[in-house]
């Protein structure tokens, strides 16, 4: 039993890891079907993991209702909305008043998606504009050289991407360099330079570190050094 609980998962991780690693270097029908099969298997497993998350969410709200915790009435809204959306998509018949069933166009699922899910999601993210602005006010106070750089880069990015940036740039005098005309301030040009040169380079530096770490972690997992995925306990 101890073998099944402790060693067997490490063996599974090792065999799966090695198989999927070396199949890359042996291009063949078999290695393609191993890759395809593994990706499909993972999608199924992740599907079940999602159910676990949903069960946990429902459990949280049911406990809240049972114990009548503050705001428990809103938990009814979550559960009712979940059941409605789930039935709308899974019911094997068209809901009365709607022409189609499941996820097809003209179904209740599609109607709920268009008139509740999309507006709420877009508004939720757009409201972040206000909070991000207040966070910016606090973060952008130029108290140090680093904060000043952050402030300048963000300001150029924000102004350079809107029509007022063009107006400001066009209002500044021009000069000639290497036979070309340039504006003293050209926010559009500065914005693309910022994105494509220092921003891309710093991101590249960070990403190179991330990729190397990912490879190191992957090797540790395959060889059973990293076992945190097994969780605690026996």
């Amino acid at each position: 039993m101890i073998f099944l609980k402790r060693q067997f998962p490490i063996i599974i991780a090792f065999v799966a890891g090695i198989m999927l690693w070396i199949r890359y270097y042996i291009p063949s029908e078999t290695s393609n079907s191993i890759e395809e099969g593994y990706l499909n298997w993972v999608r199924i497993i992740v599907g079940f993991a999602a159910i676990l998350g949903i069960l946990s969410l429902l459990q949280h709200h049911l406990i809240k209702i049972r114990l009548k915790r503050p705001g428990f009435a809103f938990s009814y809204v979550t559960i009712a909305a979940f059941i409605l959306m789930m039935l709308a998509g899974l019911a094997p018949f068209a809901i009365p008043g709607f022409a189609e069933k499941n996820m097809e166009s003209g179904s209740l699922f599609n109607w709920l998606y268009e008139f509740t899910f999309i507006p709420m999601q877009a508004t939720m993210f757009s409201v972040l504009a206000f909070f991000i602005a207040s966070a910016a006010f606090r973060a952008f106070r130029a108290r140090s050289m680093e904060a000043t750089l952050l402030l300048l880069a963000a300001l150029i990015m924000m102004v350079g991407r809107v029509p007022i940036g063009d107006l400001i740039s066009n209002a500044t005098p021009t000069f000639q360099l290497f036979g070309n005309d340039y504006h003293v301030i050209d926010l559009e040009e500065w914005t693309s330079w910022l994105l494509n040169v220092p921003n891309a380079a710093a991101k590249r530096g960070i990403l190179l570190g991330v990729y190397l770490s990912q490879i190191a972690i992957a090797i540790r997992i395959i060889f059973g050094i990293e076992r945190t995925y097994m969780g605690g306990g026996d």
Binding site: A50, I51, I54, L57, F74, S75, V77, T78, I79, A80, A81, F82, I83, L84, M85, M86, A88, G89, L90, N102, M103, F109, L112, Y113, T116, F117, M120, Q121, M124
Partner: peptide, 14 residues
């Protein structure tokens, strides 16, 4: 907020 949560989880299940 709670409606969005329920709808999005139902959407994800589908």
């Amino acid at each position: 907020e709670h409606l969005y949560l329920g709808i999005s989880v139902g959407y994800y299940v589908n």
